[in-house]
């Protein structure tokens, strides 16, 4: 009986480990490194960016997503984007993405800033936090694994929580 249970536990651990992982101490490298793709220029003529997919591990970790949510408020992202509904800045919970919806696109937008008001946060926010915010931003439009998504916050609810009934729009 016991070996059976143990085996089951081990198997389950393979499936669950990442979502519950909590990185409580971050290396200095994670604070400085600026993203998966290093580019030469901020603006590039011609075709849009090639879609290079970067795996943002923060998207798979509930803790990181929750940190993203906290930082989103702490760094005053909601000042312009509100709670994802948009205001001075564009809405983040709808389907349209001006600069692409992939993690590296969003990451780059945060690092580099964009015309018409989006400041550059590169060097101001540690890189790992940018990835966390990226993950959270993507979670607002349901682009991350649902099981890891953040819960509702203990604040006024100005948007529908990631995990709640969606048809109430």
């Amino acid at each position: 009986m016991t070996p059976l249970i143990l085996t089951l536990c081990l198997l389950a651990s393979l499936a669950s480990c990442r979502r519950e992982q909590r990185q409580l101490r971050h290396s200095p490298q994670a604070s400085t490194r600026t993203g998966g793709i290093v580019r030469d220029a901020e603006l590039q003529p011609g075709q849009p960016w090639p879609e290079v997919t970067v795996r943002n591990v923060s998207e798979e970790r509930a803790w990181d997503l929750n940190e993203g949510q906290r930082l989103y408020r702490a760094y005053n992202c909601n000042g312009c984007h509100a709670n994802g509904g948009g205001g001075m800045g564009p809405a983040l919970m709808d389907e349209s993405w001006i600069y692409g919806s992939h993690p590296e696109n969003i990451h780059d937008v945060i690092v580099e800033g964009r015309p018409n008001g989006m400041p550059s946060f590169g060097g101001k926010i540690p890189d790992y936090q940018i990835w966390e915010i990226t993950a959270y931003v993507r979670s607002m439009s349901g682009l991350v694994p649902k099981l890891a998504a953040t819960g509702r916050t203990d604040h006024m609810q100005t948007k529908i929580s990631e995990q709640s009934k969606k048809e109430e729009k």
């Binding site: 519950e20 509930a62 803790w63």
Partner: peptide, 13 residues
């Protein structure tokens, strides 16, 4: 709560 609530205790713990 709120330490055990959705905002401060992410994940399934």
């Amino acid at each position: 709560v709120p330490l055990s609530g959705p905002e401060f205790a992410p994940g399934k713990r």
